[in-house]
């Protein structure tokens, strides 16, 4: 433990900024654990964004209309962009992007388990936008006030763009719900498969959460997992009613006294199975990611060669 007076003064300044709900910026002194926590969280978030391109990318070539295809292309492009904003934020903590990608590829760092489920029908694209992006927004809006400046700023950009994602997803669901019996059944089937994984996105109950308290203290986390999950359910149940679809939870009911919906028991054993690598698509997602990185090598090399060639020509012309 470094207890030099200089460090104490810096720590006091850090604590004072946190207490005042001010922001920490990249070159400020910060406790090692604060830096490590942020690197882990921002990297996991970035990885989730780029892995999240895969389930939706699956439907790019089979979108039902040119308009839907253009929208989905834009959305998948946004996910790549969100990954890049976040890798950029993580890099301000002194860790290169290449290193973060390596940690994803060798399994040392994780991405959100929600992307380990398959997209079997077009309705899944709707359900992902409505539920998965909806849950992500619930998680991400408080991060716009995260104590670490670059992360908070990245989140502001991301949240602005996520809103389009959720609305386009809900509109796909609405169109299907107003369609033929077959289309309605497809929408219901997608809701049946995505509901539970979506509410698991908020993470385990706070009582079991490992890093909760310290992260609250540091202003990295603003609300507990259960509180955010509740907010999401309260917002989403009426939307399902509007669609005329049934949430696949027989125990779900409204508690008048509490003013909240109460959900049935969540299968956390299943959640941990997927986290540990045994979800339906974990291996496929990783091999696609690593494969894309490897097959993209020549593109990165070509861009470097092109830049070198032009730099050499410019130097020649100047000589």
């Amino acid at each position: 433990m470094d207890t030099a007076p200089e460090t104490d003064a810096r720590r006091e300044h850090f604590d004072a900024l946190i207490d005042a709900d001010d922001r920490i910026e990249p070159r400020d002194w910060m406790p090692d654990e604060y830096r490590k926590t942020l690197v882990r969280q921002i990297a996991q978030h970035a990885h989730s964004e780029i892995i999240g391109m895969q389930p939706e990318g699956n439907w790019l070539t089979r979108a039902p209309s040119l308009r839907r295809k253009a929208i989905l292309t834009a959305k998948v492009q946004d996910e790549a962009g969100h990954g890049l904003y976040l890798y950029g934020a993580a890099e301000t903590l002194g860790i290169p992007r290449e290193e973060l990608l390596e940690r994803l590829h060798n399994g040392r760092q994780k991405y959100s388990s929600i992307f380990n489920y398959p997209t079997l029908t077009w309705a899944d694209v709707g359900a992902i936008g409505w539920l998965v992006d909806g849950a992500a927004i619930m998680n991400q809006v408080p991060l716009c006030r995260c104590s670490y400046g670059p992360y908070a700023r990245a989140m502001i950009r991301i949240c602005k763009e996520e809103s389009f994602h959720q609305r386009q997803g809900f509109q796909i669901m609405l169109t299907l719900a107003e369609g033929t019996d077959e289309q309605r059944a497809m929408a219901q089937d997608a809701l049946d498969r995505w509901w539970w994984p979506s509410i698991m996105m908020f993470g385990p109950p706070d009582a079991e959460s490992v890093h909760g308290d310290q992260n609250m203290r540091w202003g990295i986390k603003r609300f507990g997992n259960d509180e955010l999950r509740q907010k999401f359910i309260d917002a989403t149940v009426p939307q399902a009613d509007l669609l005329g679809l049934t949430i696949p939870d027989p125990d779900l009911h409204y508690d008048d006294a509490a003013g909240h919906y109460v959900h049935g028991e969540i299968d956390w054993d299943h959640f941990w199975e997927v986290v540990k690598g045994d979800g339906p698509c974990n291996r496929e997602r990783m091999s696609t990611r690593v494969g894309a990185h490897e097959t993209g090598t020549w593109v990165r090399e070509a861009a470097t060669a092109y830049a070198d060639k032009h730099a050499a020509r410019a130097a020649e012309a100047a000589a």
Binding site: A74, Q77, D78, G81, L84, Y85, G88, E91, R97, R153, A154, R157, E161, A303, T304, Y306, A307, D308, H310, A311
Partner: peptide, 24 residues
Amino acid sequence: HVGTVHAPDAELALQNARDLFTRR
């Protein structure tokens, strides 16, 4: 200031920045 990109030279940095920060 809006953020960062990686690129081998200024020209590609501009193109990457265009794709990343001005899609809307």
